[in-house]
Amino acid sequence: PGGSDLKTLAKQVNTAYLKNLSMTKKRARSILSGKTSSTSPFVIYDVDTLWKAESGLVWSQLAPGAPLTKEIGVHVFYRCQCTTVETVRELTEFAKCIPGFVDLFLNDQVTLLKYGVHEAIFAMLPSLMNKDGLLVANGKGFVTREFLRSLRKPFSEIMEPKFEFAVKFNALELDDSDLALFVAAIILCGDRPGLMNVKQVEQSQDNILQALDLHLQANHSDSVYLFPKLLQKMADLRQLVTENAQLVQKIKKTESETSLHPLLQEIYKDMY
């Protein structure tokens, strides 16, 4: 495709991203830096503030479908699941708007989502994070990293690797238009296990990657190695997802009272 086609593609992907993903990096950064006119997020830093947040201050309802639990680690685990499930729903709608995606076999669309959504989520999570914590509940709450670290094992191990990734990833200073193409490239990945039409997926991903490369040259002209750095981040994200899947398996095995949302069960089953 020529330059103007790639620009059109970048624009389509960017529009789809802004339309379907509820929290943009732009909005998150303005909340985190206190530059927004809306009220600052409620800070959750211990058990008391968590229950205050749960009593309607931050979340309007208890984690839907999650059984009531007094154990704080388990509770946080359910909250993570709720957010993940909601984001998978948004990512699915985003994927459908990426040119070429709906032309794929339905089974290939499923495969791409199964393997891609967690990588995509961990690529978007840094937008909500700084080194001290992360925004939750659509920006209404801020959970401190220290609080998440203080949970008992294995729950304390859920978010820390994502913070470590986020600090490095945020140094690249991507904006929503870069992230839109980056996330689209993650979803349209040709080497997911079990794809029926690899060529077709590779062709779509290739177009997205070319659009991303061109977009970065214009949007980050001072950062020459940004494109290869992002390709490396894709590999890092795959590793992060593998570790996350192992941790979820461990929680399932050792924490017999916890349950996994049916959608997440589907995604994790026979994943890696």
Partner: peptide, 20 residues
């Protein structure tokens, strides 16, 4: 197909929120 029932559902319905 049965193995990924909810993903199929999400891909095919744009309005149904799926019972979360």
């Amino acid at each position: 197909k049965e193995k990924h029932k909810i993903l199929h559902q999400l891909l095919q319905n744009s309005t149904s929120p799926v019972d979360l």
